[in-house]
Simulated assay, not measured.
Amino acid sequence: MEFVTKQPTVKAPAETFTGDAWLDVIAQGEEPSRIRVNVVRFAPGARNAWHSHAVGQTLHVTEGRGLIQVAGGEIVEIRPGDTIHTPPGEWHWHGAAPDHFMTHIAMWEAPAEGPEVQWGSHVTEEEYHRR
Rank of each mutant, 00 (worst) to 15 (best):
A71Q: 14
Q57D: 09
T103E: 12
H53F: 07
H53T: 14
H129Y: 10
S52P: 03
G56N: 08
T58A: 09
I26Q: 15
G29M: 12
E30L: 11
G64R: 00
M1V: 12
S52M: 11
T124H: 12
T18Q: 05
W108I: 00
H92K: 02
G19T: 13
I84E: 01
G19A: 11
E2G: 08
V61N: 01
W119S: 12
E74G: 06
I84P: 07
P87W: 00
Q118W: 09
P88F: 03
A14L: 10
Y128C: 06
W22L: 05
E63H: 03
F17K: 06
Q57L: 09
G73D: 15
V117D: 09
K6G: 02
Q69P: 04
E77Y: 05
V70R: 14
A97V: 09
W93C: 05
G81N: 13
Q7V: 00
P87T: 00
Q28D: 15
E2D: 10
V117G: 03
A12F: 08
R47Y: 08
G45R: 05
R131E: 11
E15W: 07
E63F: 01
E125D: 15
R34G: 04
W93V: 08
P80E: 14
V117N: 08
E31M: 10
L59I: 14
K11E: 15
E90R: 06
H60N: 03
H60M: 13
A46L: 08
A112T: 13
V10N: 01
P44I: 11
W50P: 02
D99R: 10
